[in-house]
């Protein structure tokens, strides 16, 4: 998940014999491994996509971290901590996968901090009540899973293996989110109000997580040929709506879309498009929390410089001491 509008690097020039052979391997569903030849465009597109996904995981800690100190019971606090810890772990797998393509974690972080690389637009929305912890797990992780399950079959080996691990944990996240929603939706009138309000605020931003409509999505074709992207944005969005609407009904909550209706013919729901103007505006940096999220990450990095430098200096000193001791012993 968490990859929106990843620009694909496929050139229009006629394919070389190497490129043709590479494409044939992908078509045979072979996995591409780090040291094997790959087109530069494939490598660059993957770095962008995996990097954006990794950034989303670490920025994604913040909206939920916002409620850890206010979690309403010890158990909820423990579950939320475990979930946010998982997200940091996902970030780590993904940065490691990106490193196999020849880009360091520090380089990727610099690009995040400078605004050159993006993270998923969803994390620029605030988490205002405890019900948002439910909505984020249920809808945001739900949308993420929808995207990530097919990516387990992606052509790049390290990315595919990272996705397999991540998907296992994400499905636990989604269940715990839904469980929070269930408690709230069946709780006191105030809790129910919070639950409905959370759904109202997160519904359309969750639909935006799949990226713009296929007709406006210019980067898909090459990525799909390379099996970096498996399904189109609209396919995944439809699948998400089909799965989520009955879950909302089970909770007794109303999806905030008056156009929502079952379409017997396509065996799926018709629904309203999200406000794409809002989406592009958030991507540009004008969402409710863009500045805060990025500033928090950047401050954490800058204020932590002395810490990282200290550890590095100690490692260097220790190495020198070991070398000196070896020298003395010889």
């Amino acid at each position: 998940m968490y990859a929106q509008m990843v620009k694909s690097e496929g050139g229009d020039a006629e394919a070389t014999p190497e490129e043709l052979a590479f494409q044939a391997r992908i078509d045979r569903d072979e996995k591409i491994e780090p040291k094997e030849w790959m087109p530069e465009g494939y490598r660059k597109t993957l770095i962008r996509q995996i990097g954006q996904h990794a950034h989303s995981e670490i920025v994604g800690q913040l909206p939920e971290g916002n409620w850890i100190t206010r979690a309403p019971t010890l158990e909820r606090k423990a579950i939320l901590l475990a979930k946010v810890q998982d997200e940091a772990g996902h970030g780590l797998y993904l940065y490691s996968a990106a490193e196999t393509l020849g880009v360091s974690r520090d380089e990727l972080l610099e690009k995040l901090h400078s605004g050159e690389m993006k993270y998923s637009s969803i994390f620029n929305y605030p988490t205002l009540t405890w019900a948002d912890m439910g909505a984020v797990g249920w809808l945001v992780d739900g949308a993420a899973i929808m995207n990530q399950v097919p990516l387990q079959r992606t052509s790049y080996g390290p990315y595919s293996r990272a996705m397999i691990r991540i998907c296992k944990e994400e499905s636990f996240h989604q269940r715990q989110g839904y469980h929070i929603m269930m408690k709230m939706a069946r709780g006191t009138p105030e809790q129910k109000e919070m639950a409905q309000d959370a759904l109202n605020r997160f519904w359309f931003p969750s639909l935006m997580m799949f990226g713009p409509s296929d007709k406006d999505s210019v980067h898909s074709e090459k990525s799909m040929a390379w099996k970096i992207k498996i399904n189109t944005n609209d396919e995944l969005r439809q699948r998400f709506v089909n799965e989520t609407v009955p879950q909302a009904e089970f909770l007794g909550l109303t999806v905030p879309d008056p156009e929502l209706a079952w379409n017997e013919e396509k065996q799926g729901y018709d629904f309203s498009e999200p406000d794409w103007a809002e989406f592009f505006d958030v991507i540009k940096g004008n969402g409710p929390c863009n500045r805060e999220r990025l500033a928090t990450r950047k401050d954490a990095w800058d204020e932590g410089a002395w810490f990282r430098d200290g550890l590095t200096a100690h490692a260097e000193k220790s190495a020198k001491r070991r070398a000196a001791a070896r020298h003395a012993a010889e």
Partner: peptide, 16 residues
């Protein structure tokens, strides 16, 4: 309280 704000990703994980 450090959640998401540690000086390195490994520290985020260890603190959580």
């Amino acid at each position: 309280e450090w959640c998401g704000k540690a000086p390195a990703l490994e520290e985020d994980i260890a603190l959580a």
